[in-house]
Design a protein around this nucleic acid. Structure first.
Length: 1019
RNA sequence: GCGGAUGUGGUGAAAUUGGUAGACACGCCAGACUUAGGAUCUGGUGCCGAGAGGUGUGCGGGUUCGAGUCCCUCCAUCCGCACCA
């Protein structure tokens, strides 16, 4: 009986579905294990072979854990709100829900064909109202909380209000940018609107006018992580800064905990580092510098009010308070308002010109232009708080208005940028580090001893920092402070296809919709575009189109893509719960995700937001953990292997009948290579009567008499002439080809479905495009057209997309699963190449054959042989070790070795094959399930079989092949019993004839004998 | 510039604690069977060399009886961050 994978896979997929083999329930008697794949967006393009890589790995691991007796939660669902479906809706008018539904159906078909053990009864979709009801509910909780720095967690707004009513906000320590102090009396006197405006400054989800990344092409704002190099991550459209009233999330409040939590999770250093960078913690101290002659400045200012409004101090943030005596000037960001009031008349024109120039530079230009030092002197001076010296105040665009206070105390001896600025403008550089040379560059290391610094003299940096902060605080001119680069995340989008907010407005004040009215469903609209006055698409909805409405109007923004994906892993635990987002009982059982597999591209988006929401839900007591994903593996990208054809570009071709169109001529890659490796750069062939005259030319088409061409090169030219001429009905009279021109042209991508093993299917290629219909080819000797190739990202435009479907059809899901694992380590990026798939397919056939004799199923019930047990237990151990360290590729090799050995042993022992089948069940679920039932087990019971136990006894050897080395070089192998003592081993080795040969008459100076390992002699 | 990762045959890779480098597979070569093969089976295959042998894990150095593995220097590729005070 042949290994008929098609019928086997179809049969079992149907069985699993009908019998709900993979449906799981909470079972307090079993230990839980939660394996999760990153939430996919169901794109219209469907799956390519790169997508299932992680899914296969997680599936293998889930099955492995289940076989070991764990209760494994392994769900799948769809992050189904998103831009592509909406863009499609705008173009076609089709409701995005329909497109989304179709795409999900396609995904599901593709996923089902690979044989995953997902519990589909737990599927969730972010775009379904049953799901987003709870996204809205969580938003409400965030709205109703603030971050209390004293309890170090999120607390209810009602607690804050009580505090305001009794004490005002003077003693409050909460996360907010609100700095105005009010008393309880003042608070109680505020109007509702005023009170709400203040509360917005504290809420974790809040409405505020903030500078946002506005993307005109997408018609929406974007979060910082959705902007890469000044353009939108999706689509690459330009992004500008715009002040808009938007919902935001006060993620800043969690900066420190998000940073600390990284220590507790098992993620790659690379992702953790990216999150640390994004959070950007820096510790230091704020210091106030008094502005000299401030009164005078006010009197002279053209805008006295501005001067009065601004403080007479410049506050800076520094991470190096130990270098405070090294300050020799200050630099302000040019856009700072303070600059206007301190600039002297003499400097005004220069300063204004500089500010104007700086404002014209885009954020991107400013970043690109790091080396160009620029700035201007304001004419004003600050007073050094310790020395009383007057230090000049400059402006320069290397100081960013958005970070810290937008001002720096410049310490040129210790900071390279300050040093560069000082050198450029010839400002004083004061060295406060003992025994350092700062003539060529700043000394930025923190290992110097401080000098010329009054009370800091003789101290090392660390001690000096502490002392400096202490004295600065004592003097009341500043205090120790920690800064974070992390900014609050914009939470609204001006789009249609997203979660509506559970918010209505009355008198421009936002109010939450009561829980009983949730979910607020997406209303129908006539068009998925903004209104004429630029309101988001939801503003088009009639009041009656809303399932609930209240107040003057509903919120027209929708939530961003990361809203639904920030908590989806919780919903899988209890997907149908209508009363809670997840029940306490279920979340207490399943807890956080034990293994999370997905790409690394969400490092600063999804992975940070999900951590933030988890911490918040934990603070509020809804879930018992505060990190969502304990261990994460980032699978590498599967790259495509593109194929190329090379079109010849004849700079001149003459035909007898010049009306005839010149055909497309393609040259085979191997032949092209030969040609390029020859001395030929260009040639011309002219037919004179029946004689051919070949002329070799240089790049300028000049005749090259000095090069002697070999016979083979003449042959190459002849071949081209013949092939081209043949294709043009032998009407060519002249031909000129410039090879360097071919190289300068990009090779043409050809669809990989037309190529097999680099060989082009010429007929199919001709049919693929009308302009190729009459193409002609310069082929290899054997008549093949060989394509060139290159490894690139898989994409439609490169015609190198390989879908899993065709491979499943050709080789089966089991082969695909094993092959994807066999490619190499999961984390590594690698090119997709189907060349090796036959090897894996052959292995499965070989495995199948172990169970069959002359085409009939036949296994032996005899006692297994010693060597078969050894092969088996070697494999059991190897697989256990490999899976425990997520080395999926080496597991496949181990199976191959085992099957090869059992085949050599002609082993068809029931016990051995049965155990091997359980081991392989997680990798190749279909074929193992088939053979498992043939072995006499009930259908569908393989997934809960008892995982084989490793027994060392089967691997015990009595003898060992010792590698015998001389000076560390292995010379021969000697088989010796393992129970020999070191002395006996030495005796045996010395007695061996080969030893004599390698000793060359010398006596070894030293013997290194490690029993069971090696023998080495030092000569 | 800073940080992280990677570098081993023609190719994908393996070598888990320092102990026979290249397992396993592709490809290639030779052979068997076959009307045929993208089927199956057998043998070979790092490089140089006829052979003995030499040589070999990006380069150079070090530690060690012994280094792909540990340490130092440099180089290359990929990814992330980048005036963050």
């Amino acid at each position: 009986m042949e290994y008929n994978f098609q019928s086997i896979e179809e049969k079992w997929q149907k069985f699993w579905k009908e019998n709900q083999t993979y449906k799981i329930t909470e079972d307090p008697n079993k230990e839980k294990f939660y394996v999760l794949d990153m939430f996919p967006y169901p794109s219209g393009a469907g799956l390519h072979v790169g997508h299932p890589l992680g899914y296969i790995a997680s599936d293998i691991y889930s099955r492995y854990k289940r076989l070991q007796g764990f209760n494994v939660l392994h769900p799948m669902g769809y992050d189904s709100f998103g831009l592509p479906a909406e863009q499609y809706a705008i173009q076609t008018g089709q409701h995005p829900a329909i497109t989304t539904e179709e795409n999900i159906a396609r995904y599901r078909t593709q996923l089902d064909k690979i044989g995953f053990c997902y519990d589909w009864s737990r599927e969730v979709r972010t775009s379904s109202p049953e799901y987003y009801k709870w996204t809205q509910w969580i938003f409400k909780q965030l709205f109703d909380c603030y971050y209390d720095n004293e309890t170090n967690k999120a607390e209810r707004i009602s607690k804050l209000v009580t505090r305001f009513e009794t004490e005002g906000n003077a003693t409050l320590n909460a996360c907010s940018d609100y700095e105005t102090i009010f008393t309880a009396e003042e608070w109680n006197a505020f109007s509702t609107k005023e009170k709400e405006a203040i509360l917005q400054e504290y809420r974790l989800a809040y409405l505020a006018d903030s500078w946002v990344n506005w993307c005109p092409a997408l018609g929406t704002v974007l979060a910082n992580d959705e902007v890469v190099n000044g353009v939108s991550e999706r689509g690459g459209h330009p992004v500008e800064q715009k002040l808009m009233r938007q919902w935001s999330m006060r993620i800043k409040a969690y900066a420190e905990r998000l940073l600390q939590g990284l220590e507790t999770v098992d993620w790659t250093d690379s992702i953790k580092e990216q999150q640390r960078n994004w959070i950007g913690k820096s510790q230091g101290c704020s210091v106030k510098f008094e502005i000299a002659n401030y009164e005078l400045r006010i009197a002279n200012s053209i805008n006295p009010q501005s001067a009065i409004d601004n403080p007479q101090f410049i506050e800076v943030f520094t991470t190096r308070p130990d270098t405070i005596f090294g300050v020799s000037f200050m630099v302000l960001a040019p856009e700072l308002e303070l600059v206007q009031s301190i600039t002297t008349e003499a400097q005004r024109s220069e300063v204004d010109a500089y500010i104007k120039a700086a404002s014209l530079k885009s954020e991107r230009d400013r970043q690109a232009d790091v080396k160009n030092i620029s700035g201007a002197f304001t004419g004003a001076y600050a007073i050094h708080p310790f020395t009383g010296e007057q230090i000049p105040i400059w402006i320069g665009d290397y100081v960013l208005a958005s970070y810290g206070t937008g001002a720096v105390m410049a310490v040129p001896c210790g900071d390279q940028r300050d040093w560069d600025f000082a050198k450029h403008f010839n400002l004083p550089i004061k060295n406060i580090f003992a025994d350092t040379d700062i003539s060529e560059a700043a000394y930025a290391e923190k290992d110097a001893i401080i000098a010329d610094s009054d009370f800091l003299n003789g101290l090392d940096c660390k001690t000096a920092m502490k002392k400096a902060i202490a004295i600065i605080e004592e003097k009341g001119i500043g205090k120790g402070k920690t800064n974070y680069r992390l900014r609050d995340a914009v939470f609204s989008r001006q789009r249609y296809w997203g979660e509506p907010f559970p918010v209505y407005y009355k008198d421009d004040v936002p109010y939450l919709v009561d829980d009983q009215h949730l979910p607020i469903e997406l209303p129908e609209v006539d068009k998925y575009l903004p209104t004429e006055d630029g309101e988001p698409p939801l503003a088009r909805a009639e009041k009656s189109a809303w399932n609930y409405s209240e107040g003057d109007r509903m919120e027209f923004n929708t939530m961003p893509g990361w809203a639904g994906s920030s908590w989806y892993f919780l919903r899988y635990m209890d997907p149908k719960n209508e009363n809670e987002f997840v029940s306490k009982e279920k979340v207490d059982y399943w807890k956080n995700v034990d293994l999370y597999i997905g790409g690394s591209e969400h490092a600063t988006g999804h992975l940070l937001y999900a951590r933030f929401w988890t911490k918040f839900l934990h603070d509020q007591g809804y879930i018992p953990f505060d990190e969502p994903f304990k261990k994460m593996i980032n699978q590498g990208m599967i790259l495509g292997r593109s194929s190329f054809v090379y079109r010849l570009n004849f700079s001149s071709i003459l035909l007898e009948n010049i009306q005839e169109k010149i055909k497309e001529v393609f040259i085979s890659a191997t032949f092209l290579e030969k040609l390029l490796n020859s001395k030929i750069t260009a040639f011309e062939v002219i037919k004179n009567n029946s004689e051919l005259k070949i002329t070799f030319l240089d790049q300028r088409a000049n005749y090259q008499p000095e090069i002697n061409f070999e016979k083979k090169e003449i042959e190459y030219v002849n071949k081209i002439w013949n092939d081209v001429n043949k294709s043009h009905g032998h009407k060519c009279v002249a031909l000129r080809l410039d090879l360097s021109f071919i190289l300068s042209k990009t090779p043409i991508h050809v669809d990989i479905s037309l190529v097999d093993n680099d060989k082009l299917d010429i007929e199919a290629f001709k049919k693929s495009r009308p302009e190729y219909a009459n193409a002609e080819f310069i082929l290899e000797e054997n008549g093949d057209y060989i394509c060139g190739s290159e490894v690139e990202k898989m994409s439609k435009s490169k015609y190198n997309v390989q879908t899993p479907d065709e491979l499943v059809e050709k080789f089966g899901a089991d082969t695909l699963r094993m092959y994807e694992m066999f490619l190499g380590p999961l984390e590594q990026s690698k090119p997709w190449d189907t060349k090796g798939i036959t090897g894996v397919h052959g292995f499965l056939k070989k495995y199948w054959r172990l169970f069959h004799l002359n085409g009939n199923f036949e296994v032996s019930d005899a006692e297994p042989s010693k060597e078969a047990m050894k092969s088996l237990h070697k494999t059991i151990k190897k697989l256990r070790d490999d899976l425990d360290r997520f080395s999926f590729n080496t597991g496949v090799s181990a199976f191959m070795i085992c099957v090869n050995e059992l085949t050599d042993q002609k082993c068809n022992n029931r016990h051995v094959l049965e155990q091997l089948t359980i081991l392989m069940a997680s990798y190749a679920p279909h074929v193992t399930e088939e053979l498992w039932s043939k072995l006499g087990h009930a259908a569908g019971t393989l997934i809960d079989a008892t995982y084989p136990e490793f027994n060392e006894a089967h691997l015990v050897e009595s003898a060992y092949n010792y590698p015998v080395s001389f000076n560390g070089k292995m010379r021969f192998v000697l088989n010796l019993p393992l129970d020999l003592s070191i002395e006996q081993i030495q005796e045996q080795v010395m007695a061996h004839p080969d030893t004599m040969k390698w000793l060359e008459g010398k006596t070894p100076k030293k013997y290194i004998i490690v029993p069971g390992k090696i023998i080495n002699m030092v000569l």
